[in-house]
Nucleic acid binder design. Structure first.
Lengths: 207, 207, 207, 207
DNA sequence: AATGAATGAGACTTCATTCAT
DNA sequence: CATGAATGAAGTCTCATTCAT
């Protein structure tokens, strides 16, 4: 009796996952274009090729969809950035460089989504806000650790790791937030190279 | 006969200015709390202690209010930041330092407003967007020039002035955008000092 | 003491008349274009080159303006049509013909105004309605009398004068009401000639 | 699988038809009383016993409702008048007489609606206006043909069919437009008889 | 599980009317 | 006498959410 129940349960969970993904992708597409408030639930349903009623079986309300969209985006960051660090070996400089490089690349791939998180975060409930703050910290934690390691090892000056990571984050996000300006004279690769040079210069041990 | 006419005209212009200011202040207060879309025109009217109809005598529509609010904020920046540089003498390092310091101080004084510009800019029409992009460039132009001067004088490395200013801007804005995190362990002064140290380190001429 | 008072009174009455006329002309122009409800009092004020407040010194409210506009139009008809008959001599056929001809010409000259009376009459209060009904009867009364005279004299068949005048009225108004169609293939003169021929044929004594 | 699909589709189409009819009847009732502009969408919803929102599922906007109301009225005319001619045999006099008689009867049955079309047509967009002009021509076309036939057969004088139909139309509409006056001394039947007599007299062959 | 018709609150905006100057 | 700034009620339309099928 347990087996079929679980099988059914699995199938159900799989459908739930699929449906939620459909909705999130549709909502993300729409919000990137015109923001949360201009997106109607009917439009989400159309884009997701399902009925409005069905969305409400998988999400409590419209704000719940927003929260899920933003969390979804930030989870992508959290999954991809640390993973890149694992592949970067032990050298703090390399880990930091790789972290920044990957971060910028992910931001570039999800530029509209990145801007979206800045645009709509304040619309969330306090709980939602807490969740996304936690996710951001999780995402950057491995880089933070790399900076601490580098400081300890003496390859970096005695800088505030928290602040270095903050700068690195703003710098990566900056590529999306100020893309209208930056893209006029820089490619992503140029941006990464030059910013990285300045970033490393800013924390190299005093000569 | 010209005199009274002018007097009347002056009184009228003064009232227009006062009314617009009333509306903008009310709208800014409300938007900082809950965003553009959650702010009803009735709420603005109540907050500004006037009738809804009157708002429409001074602003074409709701989006026009938003544009004016954002422009108002950015004009404050444009007026205060360059003014601080004028008082900083000729030394590029001093000018850059002062620019950054003042920028951060103004951001801190208008933290909610700064966040607001990031949150609602995309809601604007293309014309509004152009206007605010222009204002941002105007605001930072004197700093950009200071960097160029420093590079030319050899007190800075041969860095991309555009990019340095971009970093400086993101850094100042970052104080508002990530205040929930930064304020847990830093005061504004500490933030300015440490960021300034890294900023200068990042562009000091190679040993 | 009576003399200057009367002089003042006369000057005042003259101004009142002038102001009212300004308003009525402006309102008529605007209503002909887009109807009573789409016409704002501010627009009337602008068109009449005076302030909104002043309109309210000469008219009780917006509907009062409408009533006056329609009455004004109908008074024109009442003044011009009977006057033409006075000049037509005693022959009933001539009087009828002239009456119709003039009626059509006045309608043509005030086509938009004629349509306006059909469009907006129902908007009036019952009193206003009574007034315009009375004016319409007054306008056509001389023609009605001409028909009665003609019947009595045996130059017309024993027709219902009331109905003949009704037909004549609808026919004249018809030039304005169906101008979109009639003007495609008839000039006003052709319309008058042909309609007059049929009108007279319809009431000539049985051969 | 096709069967249930069609059944569903049929049920849906039926509901759409029913809803639209509900709205149109409610709106017609209200407009006949107080005109298009004085009719609020909330009032239509109340009268139609549905919610405002639902009206907008079946009509694009308020003007769309007006257009549909007028078209609905004119389609009734177009359906009933020509049908009566089909039953009137081949004799042009009989066809013309029947056409006029039926026209007047339909006008009488829809007196308020007839007045409504004169009152509110100008409120329509150019497209709506074109549509109703076309409907009016369609409605009268069979009568126009009967007149042409009569002229050709020599039972009518060589009159302008277009103009005869125009007169007939104005005459039928006149029963509604001037009902306040006509009904004081005539029944519908009397009106039809007398007008018909004059109409035929006006086009009988000379001598 | 899935649909989408239906609801109704609430948003923006206009405009007739008043009244202090 | 004349102005036009100010009011606020009322209108149109949208859209999140529910629920019968």
């Amino acid at each position: 009796m347990a087996a079929p129940k679980t099988a059914v349960s699995d199938a159900k969970q799989e459908r739930v996952r699929r449906r939620r993904r459909q909705v999130l992708q549709a909502a993300t597409r729409l919000m990137q274009v015109s923001g949360f408030h201009s997106m109607s639930m009917q439009a989400v349903a159309d884009e997701a090729k399902m009925s409005v009623g069905l969305i409400y079986q998988y999400f409590g309300n419209k704000e719940d969809v927003l929260r899920a969209v933003i969390v979804d985006i930030l989870e992508d960051f959290r999954d991809e950035v640390p993973a890149a660090l694992d592949a970067a070996g032990a050298d703090p400089v390399k880990r930091l460089s790789n972290g920044f490089r990957v971060f910028c690349q992910v931001v570039d791939a999800k530029r509209a989504a990145t801007v979206l998180t800045y645009r709509e975060s304040k619309t969330l409930t306090p709980e939602g806000l807490e969740q996304i703050k936690h996710l951001e910290l999780e995402t950057t934690e491995p880089i933070r650790q790399a900076v601490r390691d580098g400081v300890e090892a003496g390859v970096f000056a005695d800088v505030d790791a928290e602040l270095v990571v903050h700068n690195l984050l703003m710098c990566a996000h900056g590529w999306a937030l100020k893309h209208w300006h930056l893209s006029e004279y820089l490619t992503l690769e140029q941006y990464i190279e030059r910013e990285l040079a300045m970033l490393l210069a800013s924390i190299r041990p005093a000569g």
